[in-house]
Write a protein that binds this DNA or RNA. Sequence first.
DNA 1: CCATGTGAATACTTTCACAGCC
DNA 2: GGCTGTGAAAGTATTCACATGG
Lengths: 239, 239
Amino acid sequence: MEQSTVTILRSDRLTAGAAERGIPDATVARLPIYLRALTTLADQGIGVCSSHQLASAAGVNPAKLRKDLSYLGSYGTRGVGYDVEYLRYQIARELGQTQDWDVVIVGVGHLGSALSTYGGFTTRGIRIAALIDTDPKRVGTEVGGITVEPLTALSKIVRNRHIAIAVIATPAEAAQDVTDALVAAGVTSILNFAPAIVTVPDGVDVRKVDLSIELQILAYHEQRKASNGSEAAGTGETA
Amino acid sequence: MEQSTVTILRSDRLTAGAAERGIPDATVARLPIYLRALTTLADQGIGVCSSHQLASAAGVNPAKLRKDLSYLGSYGTRGVGYDVEYLRYQIARELGQTQDWDVVIVGVGHLGSALSTYGGFTTRGIRIAALIDTDPKRVGTEVGGITVEPLTALSKIVRNRHIAIAVIATPAEAAQDVTDALVAAGVTSILNFAPAIVTVPDGVDVRKVDLSIELQILAYHEQRKASNGSEAAGTGETA
DNA sequence: CCATGTGAATACTTTCACAGCC
DNA sequence: GGCTGTGAAAGTATTCACATGG
């Protein structure tokens, strides 16, 4: 169905190339949620589920779930539902979780340390491969079983361990310099927790998470509720 | 290509009311970014800026910036640009930052501690008012100058300090119970870091941040780059 | 002139509703 | 009968391009 449409509409400006799989960004952002929901269902001993069950576990509506899954292929059975384990595998494969991704974290303050010791990564194909900090007092210490190394070691680490993904957990001032160093070293995907906009060359992806922004958005809605007794607000979701 | 998230909020279906201020969610999610960019410009001694300057500091395109600002009112001067300080104030007011918001954090593990000591909140109208944990070993200890209190103290704290916003930084298993307790205590906005979908009654907002999901999305794009040498990716942005 | 503010055009997302298949 | 998969419709968001006004 949309294959043809999408191919034509693709924003490939210059890319004459085939553009085969065009999964919408909004869908990609939800796939990890579905994965998590499927794991929950599997843990409950559920082997087959309907789009309603899975959608409810994921906090989305069933039509959206089915539409999202339809971009991956037809992995359900009409009149029955989805095989939990099979679907889980298909989504994991689509997300690239059949391999482990080595990630380097730059900045080992509170947040960097929290990330280093966060248990949720390993089961999602993410492996913290190295920790970097510029502070000489931190270099050489061990966090979550990994020895902190200096920024000067970055390019060697990235090259030797084939690291493509980095996390920036430094103060805002350092973010752009660190970004430049990461890009120079060969990193092509960056998750930026520093409260600063960093610029990167084409071909490098940046995602930004800003903890205070999320709270500011909530405060905005809270203010509206307060000034406007009647209005109700809906449940949120986020990618 | 990239994007992020963001969310929700009801469209006034039934509200016969004037629909007075209908600022789009996508715009609200960017206002804090503009605020930050304006502060940066002010720090550089810039008193007036064009939409291009500000857009570039915020990492968005100028047309989008102007459209966003147009929802707030006409705070620029044609042929000239925006007064940095004036616009900063207008956005802050729109976001509800003329008052401070007291926030309670539930869960004082690595992430909760990182949040408690994160300096970026205070300048954004967010004040960490209380820390809660169920672990008896943590209760009574001090984190970032605040004494950790037991979950049983929650409703009293929320009532006494008029807290409307809470942060959940517990393990996934505890998230729904904590949510229920928060809602019962009177909290109406929740930022959920636990890797679990929580359900809330109407009138309560939830935003979810999942650190491993962000990395999984990057891994997906990374995989596509690897399998598809020619295609380039753009710079990301996030809510 | 210049840069804002904004209708109109385009692009993307969600939701509906039902055909198709088990 | 029931549930998936999907065109088509509805709803949002982004971008264009230019009239407007200092």
